[in-house]
């Protein structure tokens, strides 16, 4: 059991936003697969179909995707959140996005009655123009959006950051100043693939974001740097597919981890990783994961 921003998780693994999170049924399936918490698909003001396909490609060493924030809009998503909440005690975090602070506030207010346990602000999607990283690359915009949402809700607000910036720490500090209770890092790394037979970029959106094994070292460094500079907890995400990856992320400074692309190999990745962390801690004689959060910083 761990506690993060007041949420009680049976283990430190969470389902990351954008993966298996479009319906209540799939979120519930992930809780049954062992996730300590689940984050929904990012929800916005209006229904969006997303980019045309191909929208995700397996590269072997990682995945590139450009979904384009497909979502049914907040009025049509409250039922999905309610259906998970009704069937599990596992915390449900609503990921939300918008073009500006007013959008974020409207979506947060629209979803609050479905009783999510926290909000995760998506200011980091790298391939939806005007949304996501368009805000997340600008410390002032992040501060503005975060404080606007924190002002109107009384549940924890987490902010998910993009690594596609010069200095992620500045952005994290802006979110912390504005009242964020946790930082989630990282979203995908800008990337593309080109079909050499035709010259066409493979993704329907031409470019997208890299996830999976290839981004783990990038995520580790971001989490490491954020841990050095921030007071609030960091939730590490990016390329975690084994318990060793999760422990590494925790030692970099993450209080909990999120897992996305790795459901590709096995839906039960959550319980597998949670069990692996437990065994590791027992073997090493650690009493709880808090003892190893940021351990790398104490090894000089």
């Amino acid at each position: 059991m761990i506690e993060i921003t007041g949420l009680k998780l049976k283990n430190p693994t969470m389902l990351a936003a954008g993966v298996m999170g479009t319906t209540g049924a799939s979120l519930l399936r992930m809780t049954n697969a062992g996730a300590g918490a689940v984050v929904t698909k990012s929800i916005g003001l209006e229904p969006k179909s997303g980019h045309s396909n191909p929208s995700m490609i397996d590269l072997g060493y990682g995945f590139i995707n450009a979904m384009g924030l497909p979502n049914p809009s907040y009025p049509d998503f409250t039922d999905e959140i309610e259906s998970v909440k009704k069937n599990t005690d596992t915390p449900v975090i609503a990921s939300i996005f918008g073009g500006d602070a007013a959008d974020f506030v409207k979506v947060a207010e629209g979803l609050i009655d479905s009783n999510p346990d926290a909000f995760e602000l998506n200011v980091s999607c790298p391939h939806a123009q005007g949304y996501g990283a368009s805000i997340g690359g600008d410390a002032c915009a992040v501060e503005d959006v975060t404080s606007a949402v924190c002002d109107v809700v009384d549940i924890p607000v987490w902010v998910k950051l993009t690594p596609n910036v010069t200095d992620i720490v500045t952005i994290g500090q802006a979110a912390q100043r504005a009242g964020a209770e946790a930082i989630v890092a990282i979203n995908t790394v800008k990337a593309m693939a080109i079909d050499i037979h035709s010259g066409y970029p493979v993704l329907g959106n031409r470019f997208g974001g890299l996830s999976g094994k290839a981004v783990k070292p990038v995520a580790l460094k971001c989490v490491y740097d954020l841990y050095s500079a921030l007071e609030i907890p960091i939730i590490g995400v990016g390329g975690i597919s084994t318990w060793e990856d999760a422990v590494e992320m925790i030692m970099a400074g993450a209080s909990a981890v999120q897992i996305g692309s790795a459901v590709y190999d096995d839906i039960n990745v959550f319980s597998n990783i949670a069990d692996g962390i437990d065994e590791f801690m027992n073997e090493k004689g650690y009493k709880n994961s808090a003892q190893i959060v940021g351990l790398a910083h104490r090894r000089n």
Partner: peptide
């Protein structure tokens, strides 16, 4: 309707077991 087609995104999950 499929998006990723490889079992990750969840767009094609069915109610009520979340089968992809």
């Amino acid at each position: 309707y499929f998006k990723c087609a490889i079992g990750v995104c969840g767009a094609c999950c069915m109610d009520s077991d979340g089968l992809r």
